[in-house]
Amino acid sequence: MNALTVNKMTVVYDKQPALEHVSFSVPEGSLTGIIGPNGAGKSTLIKAALQLIPARSGSVEVFGQPYKTQKQLIGYVPQRSEVDWDFPTNALDIVLMGRYRQIGWFKRATNKDIEWARACLEKVGMEEFAKRQISQLSGGQQQRVFLARALAQDASIYFMDEPFAGVDAATEKAIIQLMKDWKQQGKTVLVVHHDLSTVEDYFDHVLLLNKRPIDCGPTQSVFTIDNLEKAYGGSIAFLQKTTAAGGRQ
């Protein structure tokens, strides 16, 4: 069964197409990296799929049902730079936001929710920072708070937007561990990623994108020099250096 199917998604910014007729699907339980050059529309794709920005056309299905009816199955880790970390609150509070659906309207978080949120923080190695103001966390720690928030959602499909960008080694380890756990539990993970040298280590599936989908499927068959050349075009000389250990002939 496919966990996610995107059909002919087109997104237009200022009359410039950011995505053109993007169609692909991702099998349940897979770990998919969304790869492509800068400006390829990687983040745009997941935002449009989650209906956070308007798409000109296209449809999204989650486990064979329209996205609208399946929102409760989605977990999301946005880019760290998209929020203002001066916001007056602490780490635990941010993680509790992930329990919003379970808590419901007009109600306060119960002790059970708080226990749950603490457990999520512990999983990413942040338990001692639960009461720390978010403005006083390092970049990597902020990223882990976002991971814990997504974890708290207890979703079936996770979308992560550049989680590895500018984080420390501990955070990188935490992200990798989390992806492994999710895979083991049969959950589906999609990650916008730009470091080509780690693609093969992290992901079993790859979507190669440059405004249009170049190829999508298991890593061995998609992550080839041929395909990368199609996606990255002129910058391939630079690419061959950075992926010397990576892409196959």
Partner: peptide, 10 residues
């Protein structure tokens, strides 16, 4: 704090 995430979680 995070309007996009808020929208996503309902």
């Amino acid at each position: 704090f995070d309007p996009q995430y808020a929208k996503l979680i309902g």
